[in-house]
């Protein structure tokens, strides 16, 4: 095995790229769960974002429009989940699964004509001064805009939940919807907005996969990324900063695994390719063995004003 073929600067740079889709999706899902809603449809929203973003970018030639369309499409799709669980009071677990199945079907239907095409991808930003630092510049400061947007979004979500009044209300709704309702907050409306935001984030994450990371459309290309995002929210104990850590750790495992495959490591390929999933399970076990802290108290419970 030739480990010297792995360049540390490139490794870190590619970790950032591979972590971004999961980071975006997990961040959105965290806000949704903070509002007390468990949306298991992340995978379905991500793949819808991936295909809509790709199709839009190919037909308009603009990856920016692609990202915008992806966010909008996934957010609208997530509203169907919101309508079912919040207004028609359906079971959140079952509806989330349904959302995933619908998303997978919808995406392969839309994506058929786009298979094997190439899309315009996001340009790398050349940040002046910072990008010229010898090793660090290439490692941290020469990515595309979405990487930095996702990092800013982490900061924004953290600040929103911690310091703003709206963030406090959102957390109150997630901790005790009955108390929040008694105080006069519109529980259903707030939750719908959170779901919408979560959908948009998942869409961005999916579009990042199909427009930057891969960049191509293949059926089922998210291959569990949405589920891993759900696991990262648990791992992060519902905190924005830890979502970042979780997503980057996970990105690290994925990239390392691919690099080891390429370097011809003496570990069987199948072990390497199943390693992200095994590690996710391992992390979930460790977290749950320690006792899950910080889950919103009303997570997954249906809210009905008269009961």
């Amino acid at each position: 095995m030739d480990l010297s073929s792995i360049n540390p600067a490139l490794l870190i740079a590619s970790i950032m790229i591979s972590a971004t889709p999961i980071l975006l999706a997990a961040l959105g899902e965290m806000v949704v769960e903070k509002a007390g809603v468990l949306n298991l449809g992340v995978e379905g929203m991500m793949i819808t974002g991936a295909v809509v973003g790709f199709a839009t970018a190919v037909s308009t030639g603009s990856p920016t429009l692609g990202f915008m369309a992806a966010a909008l499409a996934s957010a609208v799709l997530s509203l169907s989940f919101g309508l079912l669980t919040q207004v028609m009071l359906s079971n959140q677990v079952a509806t989330g699964l349904g959302l995933t199945l619908v998303g997978l079907g919808l995406s392969s239907l839309i994506g058929k004509p786009y298979e094997g095409m190439k899309s315009p991808t996001l340009p790398k930003l050349d940040i002046p001064l910072l990008g010229d630092i010898p090793v660090l510049g290439r490692m941290l400061f020469s990515h595309d805009a979405m990487v930095y947007i996702s990092l800013l979004l982490v900061l924004a979500v953290w600040a929103f939940l911690k310091y703003t009044r709206a963030g406090l209300i959102l957390r109150a709704v997630g901790e005790s919807h009955d108390a929040a309702h008694a105080l006069g907050y519109k529980v259903v409306r707030i939750r719908l907005m959170a779901i919408f935001f979560g959908g948009a984030c998942a869409g961005l994450g999916g579009a990042y996969l199909s427009l930057v990371r891969v960049p191509q459309w293949t059926e089922g290309m998210t291959s569990g990324a949405g589920w891993i995002a759900l696991a990262i929210v648990v791992f992060a104990s519902w905190r924005a900063g830890r979502v970042l850590i979780g997503a980057y750790l996970f990105g690290g495992v994925t990239v390392l695994q691919l690099n080891l495959q390429a370097a011809g490591a003496r570990v069987p390929v199948e072990i390497l390719s199943m390693s992200p999933y095994l590690i996710t399970i391992l992390v979930l076990v460790i977290i749950s063995a320690r006792g899950v802290h910080g889950a919103p108290a009303s997570l997954g419970r249906p809210f009905h004003a008269s009961s």
């Binding site: 309508l83 079912l84 009071l89 359906s90 079971n91 349904g98 199945l101 998303g103 079907g105 239907l109």
Partner: peptide, 26 residues
Amino acid sequence: LPGASIQLFQGMLLFFLLATDVFTNF
């Protein structure tokens, strides 16, 4: 008809079932 449309068709079935279930409980 594209094969994927059947997959979507089946997913929609679950969605509509969960939606109409509101009549069962309310």
